[in-house]
């Protein structure tokens, strides 16, 4: 494990894009973990100071009620990242479970699971989230992550299935079967380790998609359970306070947008770089 880590870190150092992406993601993680302790959130409304431009006291300006925008971004990051990580955990487990079961069992089980997967891939996610989310009234990050995971596992499940299909014909799996090892052992100890790099990259992609989806849904007005979620900030700016019509308030709209795009870029670079590191065939000759 330690050898793997040091090997991984040196490969990361050699890959500038992966390094940049990794640093950006680490920055967001720090912001979510310790940011709220460092920058206090003051909810007092001071309408005389509304929509102040960025300054030393307020690096990202103030909102419609004179409150610091930076503090809201920092406090919101905890909520946004919690949903992203939880969704990635739920979705990955669901997708690996469904994909592995379908690929390994074959037959009717496979046909049924692939039908479900096709339906998931066909029916667009946003309307599904809105219908289910408003009927069941999601109220917290865990519920929200569960909602998003419900309609996001398709691509990974399909990819895992085809990986399992090709892996299960290899000699080492046949050897394990001849040795009389059980299905659980073959799946967990022989097949899954081969999927790890590939699942890690999907994990990052799912985090990205989860942020796009959750911020978008909260922006639309579904489940506004956190006042500082970036989606809530956008919702307030666009639908509630008329900030988009006020030229002076541009910073209030752009701040949540910018943190979302920067996170996505970091994740894209990191995933792309990881792909190059973990997949030796893509690794550029040193």
């Amino acid at each position: 494990m330690r050898a793997f880590l040091s090997d991984f870190l040196s490969a990361l150092r050699g890959n500038r894009r992966a390094l940049a992406g990794g640093l950006i993601l680490a920055g967001y993680l720090l912001m979510a973990l310790i940011g709220p302790e460092l920058i206090p959130l003051d909810p007092t409304m001071r309408y005389a100071e509304r929509f102040r431009p960025p300054s030393l006291a307020h690096p990202l300006g103030t909102d419609y009620a004179g409150r610091d925008v930076l503090a809201q971004i920092v406090h919101g990051s905890r909520d946004v990242l919690a949903i992203a990580v939880l969704t990635a955990l739920f979705t990955t487990s669901l997708a690996v479970g469904i994909g592995a079961l379908a690929g390994y069992s074959g037959g009717m089980v496979d046909a049924f699971l692939m039908l479900l997967t096709n339906i998931q891939l066909t029916v667009p996610a946003v309307p599904v989230y809105l219908l289910i989310g408003s009927v069941f009234q999601v109220r917290d990050p865990i519920g929200f992550a569960a909602l998003i995971s419900l309609w996001m596992w398709g691509p990974l499940a399909r990819a895992v299935r085809s990986q399992i299909l090709s892996l299960k014909e290899r000699e080492f799996v046949e050897a394990a079967r001849v040795l009389g090892l059980g299905t659980a052992h073959i799946l967990l100890r022989e097949l899954f380790p081969n999927l790890t790099p590939f699942v890690v990259i999907h994990f990052i992609r799912i985090m990205r998609d989860a942020i796009t989806a959750s911020v978008g849904l909260i922006f639309l007005g579904l489940a506004p359970f956190s006042p500082t979620n970036w989606g809530t900030m956008l919702n307030l700016a666009v639908f509630q306070t008329g900030a988009i019509y006020i030229p002076n308030a541009l910073h209030y709209v752009v701040a949540p947008m910018a943190v979302i795009v920067l996170f996505q870029l970091g994740a894209i670079f990191f995933a792309h770089g990881l792909d190059e590191i973990l997949n030796p065939r893509l690794r550029a000759p040193a």
């Binding site: 796009t212 911020v215 947008m257 979302i260 795009v261 996505q264 870029l265 894209i268």
Partner: peptide, 8 residues
């Protein structure tokens, strides 16, 4: 554009 959600 991949990094920017369509609604943004």
């Amino acid at each position: 554009t991949d990094a920017t959600p369509d609604y943004l």
